[in-house]
């Protein structure tokens, strides 16, 4: 390829990526634009551009309840999935045992399964057991597909983990518990943090499982889903923007916390 053809090819590639990104972000931009109006009917471009909808949303009792429900579920899912998945990842990637390949495939099955169908199946299951669906059952449903995701995330880290370190610790006379606390867990930590973040965000944004399994409780995505069809007002896109900002904030806080922890760890090694 000569120089001119190559640079044309490069700009075509860049243009393609920009197009893909633009298309991916059009819906989010549309929601943000729609939230800046004060009319009950969508009439773009707005006559008056205002942030009134945000003031209404922040003052509304609903906003708080919705966030609280989603937050409770996401935190419960995060904690339980990290505990279950840490063990699961050891079996998935660290230990060599006879049923490992079968276990790896079994673990993937909930990921390769249509979520709304899983939600409906769980609804029937809970009802058959005499359990009234609520935010707790929604958290259980989230766990069914988030535990495999988090297990994969932690496993990917574990593949790079050098088992010899453990053997060395054993040779130096460490007990099984000491090895777990001093060698294995610190090596797992970055995977656990990203796994926890995945769990929180995937639960926070989940619609298909919550819709069928949360009973009388309503999560943010569910509320937005029901309001897209009826009872539209600029408060709906405003709450969508706020909910998305909250999840961005969680990611930001985790990133800051992580770099702080790393900085302190580095200082300790230096000293």
């Amino acid at each position: 390829m000569n120089g001119r053809a190559k640079s044309l090819f490069d700009s075509l590639q860049a243009a393609w990526l920009l197009l893909v990104l633009a298309l991916l972000y059009i819906p989010m931009i549309s929601v943000a634009l729609a939230s800046l109006s004060n009319t009950r009917y969508m009439l773009f471009p707005h006559r008056t551009w205002t942030t009134d909808a945000y003031a209404d949303a922040l003052a509304s009792y609903t906003t708080g309840t919705l966030h609280l429900t989603s937050f409770r579920i996401a935190v419960l899912v995060m904690v339980l999935s990290v505990v279950l998945a840490s063990f699961g990842a050891l079996a998935f990637a660290r230990f060599d045992w006879r049923g490992r390949r079968a276990f790896q495939r079994f673990l993937l099955l909930p990921l390769f399964f249509p979520q709304p169908v899983l939600g409906l199946a769980l609804l029937v299951y809970f009802t058959a057991l005499g359990i009234t669906p609520s935010w707790q059952t929604a958290a259980f449903a989230h766990l069914v597909w988030i535990v495999p995701v988090v297990t994969l995330v932690i496993s990917i880290r574990l593949y790079n983990y050098d088992v010899m370190q453990e053997d060395a610790a054993f040779d130096l006379g460490a007990t099984r518990l000491q090895v777990l606390r001093e060698v294995t867990l610190p090596a797992l930590a970055p995977g656990i943090v990203s796994g926890a973040l995945f769990a929180f965000l995937l639960s926070w944004s989940n619609l298909p499982l919550s819709v069928f399994t949360s009973g009388a409780d309503t999560t943010l995505p569910e509320w937005l889903y029901s309001r897209t069809a009826t009872n539209y007002s600029p408060m709906v896109p405003a709450i969508a923007v706020i909910a998305t900002a909250v999840s961005a904030l969680v990611v930001g806080a985790a990133a800051v916390g992580l770099s702080l922890a790393r900085g302190r760890g580095g200082a300790k090694t230096a000293a």
């Binding site: 929601v31 969508m42 619609l207 298909p208 999840s247």
Partner: peptide, 13 residues
């Protein structure tokens, strides 16, 4: 990581 309901709602808008 952004909810399906937000993104589909945006597409509709």
């Amino acid at each position: 990581f952004i909810s399906e309901s937000v993104r589909l709602f945006g597409l509709a808008l």
